[in-house]
C-alpha cells in the first residue's frame, strides 16, 4: 500500500541545506500498521511529511496504492489516498469553525454530495454524538478533538492514514480510547496506517512492524513479536527500550 524506496528529505536552501532523511526504504502492506520510532530530530516526522505531500523537497520513490507520486505536484487522486491525523488536538482544528464545519470541509472541497448525512455518519464512526457538530473546539475536550481530527481524515475515504504522534498530547485513559478507536477503524474499513511516535509502549501495542530511526536513517526493522521479546540487534533500540520500559 505504501512503498518508499531510497527516500532523501532535505530542508533549507544553499549552504543551510540540511539532509534530514537518508536512504530510507520500507513497505507497508494493505491493512498493516507500520511504526516509525525515534527521538526528536531523528527524521521520522520528515518521512511522514514527505509522504503526505506537506513537504516537497525530497528525492526517491514513494508509491501510494501502487501509483508513484511526484514530490512537486500532487493530483487530486493522490490527495484522496492519504490523510494525516495530527499530534496536537488544539492546533489541528480551526478554532473558529464548528465541529460539523471542520468535518464537512474536505467534503466541500471535493464537492461531495449529502454532506450533512456524511458528517453524521462520520461522527458516529468516531464515537461522538451527532449534536456535537454544532459545538466549537473550545467546548470539547482534547480526546474529543482528536476524534474530530480522525473523522475529518476519514471523510474522503482515504485508504491510508498517517498518524503523527496521535496520542502523545492526551491523558493515558483517553489515549487508550483513541488507540482502540483507531484499531477498530482499521479492522472495519481495511485501512493502512503509518504511525510516527516516540512511545515504545504505543508502538508495541499498535504496530505490526517497526522501523527504528536515528539520525535520518532506519537503523533497525523489527516485528511486533521481536519487539515484545526484546530481540533487538542495534544498541540504540536497546537503549530506547530500557529507557521506556518499567524500571
Amino acid at each position: 500500500m505504501i512503498e518508499v524506496e531510497d527516500l532523501q528529505v532535505f530542508y533549507g536552501e544553499g549552504r543551510d541545506r540540511f539532509h534530514a532523511v537518508r536512504d530510507v526504504s520500507f513497505r507497508v502492506e494493505k491493512g498493516e500498521t507500520y511504526g516509525l520510532v525515534g527521538e526528536s530530530g531523528s527524521g521520522k516526522s520528515s518521512v511522514l511529511n514527505a509522504i503526505a505531500g506537506r513537504h516537497s523537497d525530497w528525492t526517491g520513490t514513494v508509491r501510494l496504492a501502487g501509483a508513484e507520486v511526484d514530490p512537486r505536484r500532487r493530483n487530486p487522486a493522490d490527495r484522496q489516498k492519504v490523510q494525516i491525523v495530527f499530534q496536537d488536538p488544539f492546533g489541528a482544528i480551526h478554532p473558529k469553525h464548528t465541529i460539523g464545519g471542520t468535518i464537512a470541509e474536505p467534503l466541500a472541497i471535493n464537492r461531495r454530495q449529502n454532506r450533512g448525512e456524511t458528517v453524521d455518519a462520520l461522527l458516529r464512526q468516531v464515537g461522538l454524538p451527532g449534536r456535537f457538530r454544532y459545538r466549537y473546539p473550545h467546548q470539547i475536550s482534547g480526546g474529543q478533538r482528536q476524534r474530530v481530527s480522525i473523522a475529518r481524515a476519514l471523510a474522503l475515504q482515504s485508504p491510508i492514514l498517517l498518524l503523527d504522534e496521535p496520542t502523545s498530547a492526551l491523558d493515558v485513559s483517553v489515549q487508550a480510547e483513541i488507540l482502540n478507536l483507531l484499531q477498530d477503524l482499521r479492522r472495519d474499513q481495511g485501512l493502512t496506517y503509518l504511525m510516527v511516535t516516540h512511545d515504545i509502549g504505543v508502538v508495541g501495542h499498535m504496530c505490526d512492524r517497526i522501523g527504528v530511526m536515528k539520525d535520518g536513517r532506519i537503523v533497525e526493522e523489527l516485528t511486533k513479536a521481536q519487539l515484545v521479546r526484546g530481540e533487538t540487534a542495534h544498541p540504540f533500540t536497546r537503549e530506547l527500550l530500557s529507557e521506556s520500559l518499567l524500571g
Binding site: 487508550a176 488507540l179 501495542h205 511486533k224
Partner: peptide, 14 residues
Amino acid sequence: AIPRLDRPRDRLAT
C-alpha cells in the same frame, strides 16, 4: 489503560 510491552493485549482497557 497504559499500553505495555510486557503485557501485550488486543484491546486496551478503557
